[in-house]
Design a binder for these strands. Structure first.
Lengths: 213, 213
DNA sequence: CTGCACGCCGATCTTGACCTCCACGGCTGT
DNA sequence: ACAGCCGTGGAGGTCAAGATCGGCGTGCAG
């Protein structure tokens, strides 16, 4: 909860090296943005959370938007990297699906709720934010679609749509799972969804399936 | 595009019956909210778009939030109704999946982009909005989960997670499809996703599918 | 010991958006 | 036809939040 207190145990007025201060500010900003969203989060709140005054925020970041984008970029890259790693972790497509789905669950589970910035941002009207968020989704789905297209012979457009469906399903279910206070173990939920996805995608080469429902 | 002009062809100063004026304001507000999001939309913009002045807005709605909620409620109910209708349209589960998926595609395709209010709201930090949006997702998923639980014997929690996955997949793919300028015909996209979903869910009764994972 | 430099804080400014007050013009009753 | 009324319009108040300036305390060189 209050991970900041560890980095700034003295209540106020501590002199910090520049980089340490910056990281501390990023941590505080993330907590506030995650808890309140971009619009409801005030720079005063972030400064107070970090135990500093407002001017220091502006000595490290030009403005609220840049502060937000710094955090967003950080976690976007983390998600893309996690999905890439999952896809490259094996050549067995079933395991690939399981690893990728679990990457979403892990992403939602860790990072101190940072998934809210990537998946539930309230600043998607800002072009810079929208670009990043869409780019993440498309990058991940594109990596998946390559595998799909290769193994099914479907066209790129259709493979991409399926990939969006699978990654979107993983994202939505992971968010639902975390929002429900982890009533189901992560393992169980992740496996259930990866099974759903795998059963959906695995028989796609053949045009017409459903042999007696 | 400018559907408002039809309802208000006289440029300014037209006396309108109360309900007609209200509906016209709702239409104008929807266009602005869809195009700009809640925060970036100014009441001045909405008034100007409707061809009236600001006070008349406040004579019909107590404030910006209530105006937004009125629109949101309207379209939330529309989506829930569409999903309910789709689920009740048949007893063949395969067709049910197809109909439900297409309900999402139709919802995204019609209503003048109103899906952005339900699926991409930038006001989810407001409790009233979050409640409504989550309630829609859960209501739809719950209806689906009932069918799943009944036909597979899975527990409610697991059936619900699967239902969230299926409805979420439909929602995400429909949004992606509409955002890509309809490069694929809606029919094709909808069928592709419903096939993916049906292949995923249809063999779920059996606990263990994979022969030697 | 003492003066300097540097980073931090309290207090403030300004902008912009939501929300109301004084004049005008079209409808109704005789 | 004419007077009154009610809804409309432009101009303004208020307030919150992002962005910024004069003191202060700490640590070091000489």
């Amino acid at each position: 909860m209050t991970a900041i207190q560890d980095a700034d145990s003295r209540p106020r007025g501590t002199r910090l090296p520049r980089l340490a201060r910056r990281n501390q500010l990023l941590g505080a900003a993330q907590e506030v943005f995650v808890a309140q969203g971009y619009h409801a989060a005030a720079m005063d709140d972030i400064a107070e959370r970090a135990g500093v005054s407002k001017p220091v925020l502006y000595q490290h970041f030009p403005g609220k938007l840049e502060l937000y984008l710094a955090l967003l970029d950080q976690h976007c890259e983390a998600l893309v990297a996690a999905v890439r790693t999952a896809l490259e972790s094996t050549h067995d497509n079933k395991l690939r699906v399981a690893a990728t789905v679990d990457a979403y669950f892990a992403f939602v589970d860790d990072h101190g709720g940072a998934f809210r910035l990537v998946f539930e941002s309230d600043l998607t009207n800002e072009a810079a934010v929208r670009d990043r968020v869409e780019r993440v989704a498309e990058t991940c789905a594109d990596a998946v679609s390559k595998v799909i297209a290769e193994d099914t012979g479907l066209g790129q457009d259709e493979a991409m749509l399926l990939a969006i469906g699978l990654t979107g399903m993983a994202q939505v279910t992971a968010r639902y799972w975390i929002s429900k206070g982890v009533a189901i173990p992560r393992d169980t939920a992740s496996k259930l969804i990866s099974t759903l996805g795998w059963r959906g995608i695995s028989r796609f080469p053949r045009r017409d399936e459903t042999p007696a429902g």
